Amino acid sequence: MFSRIANLFRGFLSLFIKGLEKRNPEALLELEQENLRKQIASYNQGLANHAGLAERLIGQVRKLETEEKELRARTTAHLRAGNKQAAAQYALRLQTITRELAENRSQMESAEETYKDLVRARDVAVNAARAKIESLKGAINDMRMKTAMAEMNEMAAGMVGSIGGSGDTLSRLHEMVEEERSKASGRARVARDSIDMNDINVKEAEMTALADQALADFAAAEGLTLDGDAAPAPAQRSMGSSQPGSESESA
Rank of each mutant, 00 (worst) to 15 (best):
E67H: 06
L92V: 09
N104G: 10
L57Q: 03
V119Q: 11
D123I: 02
E113K: 10
L71C: 02
A87Q: 05
A102D: 04
G82M: 02
R99H: 13
L101V: 05
H78Y: 12
E113V: 08
K116V: 13
K63C: 06
A81S: 07
Q107E: 09
R80G: 04
E67W: 00
L92W: 04
A91N: 13
L94P: 01
S110M: 04
E65F: 04
V119P: 01
T75R: 11
V119L: 11
R122I: 06
T66K: 08
R93L: 11
Q95S: 10
S106Q: 10
E113C: 02
I58L: 15
I97S: 03
A88H: 14
A87H: 08
Q107V: 09
N83W: 06
L94K: 04
D123N: 05
K116E: 15
E103C: 04
E65M: 08
A102K: 02
V61I: 08
T66M: 08
L101P: 03
T75G: 10
E70S: 10
A88T: 12
K84R: 11
K63N: 12
A111P: 07
L71F: 03
R99C: 11
L57G: 01
A73F: 12
G59M: 00
E55W: 01
G59P: 00
T66W: 04
A77N: 07
T75C: 12
G82R: 02
Y115T: 15
Q85C: 00
Y115P: 10
Q60K: 07
L92H: 03
A86H: 08
R120P: 05
T75A: 14
R120F: 13
E100Y: 00
G82K: 00
T66L: 13
A81L: 06
Q95F: 08
L53Q: 15
N83L: 07
R72W: 03
E103A: 11
I97P: 00
M108H: 04
E55D: 09
L94W: 09
R56D: 11
E113D: 09
L64F: 01
L53W: 13
R99Y: 11
L79K: 06
Q89A: 15
A86V: 12
A86G: 10
S110W: 01
E65L: 08
N83M: 08
G82L: 00
A81Y: 05
E103K: 03
I97G: 02
R72I: 01
R122C: 11
I58R: 11
A81Q: 07
A88Y: 13
V61Q: 01
K116N: 13
A91L: 14
V61E: 06
Q95D: 10
Q95V: 03
K116H: 11
E112S: 07
L79N: 06
E109K: 06
N83E: 11
G59F: 02
E55Q: 06
K116T: 14
N104V: 08
I58M: 13
Y90Q: 14
Y115N: 15
E67I: 05
I58G: 14
R120E: 14
E103Q: 08
A81G: 05
K69V: 03
R122Y: 07
A111C: 13
K69Y: 01
L101F: 02
L94S: 07
E70H: 07
Q107L: 12
Y90D: 15
A81V: 04
Y115F: 14
D117S: 15
I97H: 02
A86S: 12
